[in-house]
Every structure is written in structure tokens, then in C-alpha cells.
Design a protein around this nucleic acid. Sequence first.
DNA 1: GGCGTAAACCTAACACTGTTCGGTAAAGGG
DNA 2: CCCTTTACCGAACAGTGTTAGGTTTACGCC
Lengths: 208, 208
Amino acid sequence: MPRPRVPLLDRPRIRAAALTMIDSAGLPGLSMRALAAELGVRAPSLYSHYQTKDELLGDLAEEIMAGVDVSGFGSGWVDGVRTWARSYRGALAVHPNLVPVFASGPADRPGALERADTVHGALVAAGWPPRQATMIGASAKYLVLGAAMHSFSRGFEDDARVYADRYPHLSQAHRLREHADEIDAESFELALDAFLRGLVALHAGISA
Amino acid sequence: MPRPRVPLLDRPRIRAAALTMIDSAGLPGLSMRALAAELGVRAPSLYSHYQTKDELLGDLAEEIMAGVDVSGFGSGWVDGVRTWARSYRGALAVHPNLVPVFASGPADRPGALERADTVHGALVAAGWPPRQATMIGASAKYLVLGAAMHSFSRGFEDDARVYADRYPHLSQAHRLREHADEIDAESFELALDAFLRGLVALHAGISA
DNA sequence: GGCGTAAACCTAACACTGTTCGGTAAAGGG
DNA sequence: CCCTTTACCGAACAGTGTTAGGTTTACGCC
């Protein structure tokens, strides 16, 4: 099967197939051979479109991050950060299996820089010193990434008997898995709320 | 080379070598063959001591988490959480290359459960409803894990010219790498402080 | 319209990974 | 002194990302 009349492959098609595979089979479930098979093609053909697997994953990451909303700073820096962090987490929560890619790969892609610039600029404009603005951006990202990692609620086994007597305070821990998504979402909201509340107090101290 | 007079391998020795390799060469730098070579042995020999590589990594993770301090709850839940989160982050910061292991692997090892039980119990004893206690534990973990991931400050290239004109608010971004560890540490402290401040306010609302 | 180049796929292979099987020789107990 | 167990080894399997080189077709140009 040499050159086909109409190309079987292009970057968007490869990304779409890769994302589907990652969502359903997890990150280790995506191999270049399996991905190629899904696209009716052999593995080496992919390398005419993406030079490495990492480049593909990076592009996938950027595509997903493109939807992150940094437009909320019009109604104040608190709402701005809140909107940003929420949509950031939301974007990651849709594709949880992809989160390790965000965590390890470099984050200096153009879109990410543009958003970082927006956030940083808005915070400085609101009266935060540049260094503090940097740290706030970093902190919010910590929260989002940690929450997306969601290893907490998933870390408990289903078998309740293991804990019942040994860890008295965790006797309901087996329930965590049922409500894992719910707990994750609420915990993130709690953390974000508390974080912003504390920042407001700090900001008042600076402005005064 | 059959059975030696004195065994070349045991679990602590394997762990120590693995940790050294991970610290210096990164997580992908640790292969069973390379690890065996470092120990003067061939790869299959390792499998008499650890059944899989994951088991080894899990054991390594547990070893590192053993130093996490949950003894601070004697002087109140705020100090308790602060001490816990700080020592948690500290433990991870010493071996940053190992962080992905914590993020993906299951967290239900005995030591981790014991610490989770301590934290949860102390929060409930301080008047937090169990569900809130769970969420606070989760939130703190988000923060620690996200901070340990430290992908933020590392995400900027060294070359300043790229940003100078295009992203005006990030014109100092190239400096981030120099101070990456410092920024990470301070950002974490800022986030933890703001988070706890907000929680105190929330707790006052509940107790009232 | 024919021709040369470039595109888009292919097969085969390399170097590597975690892991298993079966062998071997020495250590340690009865 | 024998016998079992221990602790190593070599060889191999199935899988990975990736590269080299080949083949046929499509497309731009004279």
C-alpha cells in the first residue's frame, strides 16, 4: 500500500485517535503501533507527521489547554483567578489519563505563555508585586495539577474490612471511591476558596 | 558466577542503588539492567528480591514517605496540617524525580493509611465534620503534590529574547529557572498560608 | 501530455524495555 | 558427606520508540 489517493493521515486525525485511545485505555495503552492500527496504517507512517511520540503528546496537551479561560479578570483578580483555575482543572478533568503529560512535559508552549502573561499582568495591574504575582500563578497551578492528579481519593481500596478496625477514623474510606469524582471536585472548590480567601486578606495587607 | 559467599543483593541495598540512580539520572534512567549493573549483578537476579519494578518503586515511595511528620496536631489542627504538609512536601522535594511514582501509583500503603487516619481523626476532633475533614486532607495533598511536580517554574526556557517583546509581563520569566527552587518553596508557603487562613475563617463559621 | 520530484505509505530492522525459564554452583543443614 | 535450598546466570520473549531504505502514486512544470 503505497501513496493513497487521499491521505489517510494528518495531524488532527492522529491527535483525535490518540486522545480517544488515551481516554479509553490509559496513557500506557497508547503505543505508536496500536495508534497506527487504529488509523489503518503502520507505525512508521506516523513519523512523517509527528517526529516523536512526545511531540504528539505535547501537541495534544496544547490542544486541550487551548480551552482554558483567562478572560475573567475583567471582574477583578479574585474572580479572574477563580475562573482561570476552574476552567484549567475542568480541562484536565475531562482527560484524566493525560494529566501526567502536563505534569512532566515542559509547559512553555506559546498558548501557555500567553495565558501566563495574561494572569501575571492582571495580578500586577491589581496591585500585586511581580514576585507575588508569579507565586500566585504558581500556587494556583499547584492546586490545579494536584487536584487533577486525583490520586488521593483513588488511593483507597474497595475492601472496607481492611480498615474497619485498624484505622478507626477511616472507616468510611471505602466509600471514597464511589464518590471519588464528587469529592475531588468539592475538595478542589474548598481549596480554591480557602486559598483565594487567604489571598484577599494578604492583598488587603499590601494595599494598606 | 553462581551463589556467592556473601549475598550481593538484598532489598535495602537494591532500594539505595535505585534511589541514587533515580536522583541522578531521572526516573527513565532507572532500568532493571542498569540497576543490576550498578549492583554488580545481572537484571534477572533482582527478581528474586522484588517481583516487579513497580513493587520496587512502591517500596521506595513508602520508604520516603515514612519520614512525613503528622505529630504536629498537639498544638492545634492548623499547626498540625501545616507541619504535615511541609514535611510531606519536603520529603518529595528531596527526590523530585520520584514524584511521578507518588502521583500515579496507589497510595493505600499501610504507612500512608496510618498518617491519613491521624490527620483525619485530628481534624474531626477539632470540630470539622468528617466530610470536610476528608476534603481538607485531599486539598492539602493536592497542594503538596502539585508543588512537588514543580512543572511551573521549570517550564520556561532560558532564552529571554523569546519573551521580551511578545509577552511583556513575563519579561523576567527567564530568571525563574535560576530561582526555581526558591520560587517553588515560597509559592508553596504562600499557598499553604492562604489555604489555612481561609480554612480558619471557614472553621469559625462552622463552630459558631 | 509526459516527466521528474516529492509525498505518503510500506517492510525490515535496531536498540532498548520489563520479565520468565531453566540451568549451575556454592552454602548450609541433617 | 549428601541433599536441598539459595542466589546468582544466560538466553529468550514480547513489547516499546524509532530509523533506513524501498515502492508507488500524486502533483507541478515544460
